[in-house]
Computed example of a mutant assay.
Amino acid sequence: MSSDQSSNQKKSNQFTIIKDDPNDGHGGYGVGAISLENMSSVIIDPNEDRAFIDMGAMHARSEVERRVKFQNDRDVVANGKLYWIVWVNTEKGENGPYFSGVCGSEIVVDRSIKRAYKSMPEHVTHMEKSLKGKIMVEHMDDHSKKLLRDFLANFEGGDMWANSSDELKEALPNE
């Protein structure tokens, strides 16, 4: 296994936290482009009571998105299972890294017919809002919010959660 492969596997199990700006010091090609370096995707699977980081979602290739054909009509997957892709942005503050933006986007998957539904405009909007430090989880069901809260609060000892805003903690209460 090459060092690139092993570092990619290592990255998939942790949040991406502030990297150096690749455009720092020059004004060339790519300046002003949106950077997704501080964003991670957390999959919430309320069907199996689990939450996990899956960086494949950044390219619509997460575990839950593979081997299905996406439809624009939610009725096609009326018997599907609900999942959430939560776009989590991190930043580094005076007390250390914290969760700055958290926005959940739904996805419904029916494996029996190999079809799935997600609203691409919604996912893109939620990614953008997360990058801007917004918290948007009010549309998620309570069980999924609890799974997300428990995952974030327990991630690497809970320091990032402790450093996060009261707005996030209120949006994902411990109930």
Rank of each mutant, 00 (worst) to 15 (best):
S100H: 03
M136A: 06
L82A: 03
T90K: 09
F70W: 07
G80N: 09
W84E: 00
N79S: 10
G133M: 11
A116V: 03
F70Y: 12
S105F: 02
V124C: 01
V77N: 03
E128S: 14
S130V: 07
V88N: 01
S112N: 15
L82H: 07
V88I: 05
N95L: 12
E106L: 05
Y98M: 07
R66L: 14
K129V: 08
N79C: 00
V86D: 01
I135C: 04
T90V: 05
I107M: 14
K118H: 12
A116Q: 00
R115I: 01
T90Q: 10
K114S: 15
E122V: 13
G101D: 08
Q71T: 14
L82N: 10
G133Y: 11
H126F: 11
D110R: 04
H123G: 04
V68S: 04
R74P: 01
K114P: 02
Y98A: 10
M127S: 15
E122I: 11
K81Q: 12
D73W: 09
R74D: 05
V76T: 13
K134T: 11
E91G: 14
R67Q: 13
N95I: 00
E106R: 09
L131N: 12
K69A: 07
N72P: 01
L131P: 09
I85W: 03
G133E: 12
N89G: 11
V108C: 04
N79Y: 10
I85S: 05
K129E: 15
G80T: 01
A116Y: 00
